[in-house]
Amino acid sequence: MPAAAYTPSLPGLSTADEVDTVINWGLGADSTAYLARILTDPSAYGIDLERTAVLYMATGSEWPETRMLVEEFMLPLLREHGVRFVQ
C-alpha cells in the first residue's frame, strides 16, 4: 500500500482553504513593491485576490518606521482588497 501523501500545513491556513496563491512578504522594499503592484492590478498577473494569502513572520527586528508605514499604507490596502493576511 503506498504511503499517504504528506500535505504540510501553515498556521492560519488549512488544506480546506481555497488558496492558490501565497505571497511571502518580508516588509522589505522589493516584496512591498511587488505586493502593492499585485494588489493594484491583480488581473495583469493572473491572480485572484479572493484565493490569495499573504504570509508574514514578525521577527521583532523590524525598524519602527517600517512597522509604521506598513500599518498606515499596506495593511489598509490588504483589507481594502480582502486579501487574507497570516502573521
Score class of each variant (00 low, 15 high):
Met1Asp: 12
Ala3Met: 08
Ala3Lys: 11
Tyr6His: 02
Thr7Asp: 05
Leu10Thr: 15
Pro11Tyr: 11
Leu13Asp: 07
Ser14Ala: 12
Thr15Arg: 09
Thr15Gln: 05
Thr15Trp: 03
Thr15Val: 01
Asp17Lys: 13
Asp17Cys: 10
Asp17Ile: 11
Glu18Leu: 05
Asp20Cys: 04
Asp20Arg: 05
Ile23Gly: 02
Ile23Phe: 15
Asn24Gly: 15
Trp25Cys: 02
Gly26Leu: 14
Gly26Tyr: 12
Leu27Lys: 07
Leu27Thr: 13
Ala29Ser: 06
Ala29Lys: 11
Ala29Pro: 02
Asp30Val: 14
Ala33Val: 12
Ala33Met: 13
Ala33Lys: 07
Ala33Ser: 13
Leu35Ile: 09
Leu35Val: 06
Ile38Ser: 04
Thr40Gly: 13
Thr40Ser: 15
Pro42Asn: 06
Gly46Ile: 09
Ile47Gly: 04
Asp48Glu: 15
Leu49Tyr: 10
Glu50Phe: 02
Glu50Lys: 14
Ala53Asn: 13
Val54Leu: 13
Val54Glu: 14
Tyr56Trp: 08
Met57Trp: 07
Met57Gln: 04
Met57Tyr: 09
Ala58Pro: 07
Ala58Val: 00
Thr59Gln: 01
Thr59His: 01
Glu65Ile: 05
Thr66Arg: 10
Arg67Thr: 06
Arg67Pro: 00
Leu69Ala: 01
Leu69Ile: 00
Leu69Asp: 00
Val70Trp: 01
Glu71Thr: 04
Glu72Met: 12
Phe73Glu: 15
Met74Tyr: 08
Met74Val: 15
Pro76Met: 09
Leu78Trp: 05
Glu80Ile: 01
Glu80Phe: 02
Gly82Tyr: 11
Gly82Ile: 04
Phe85Met: 10
Val86Met: 02
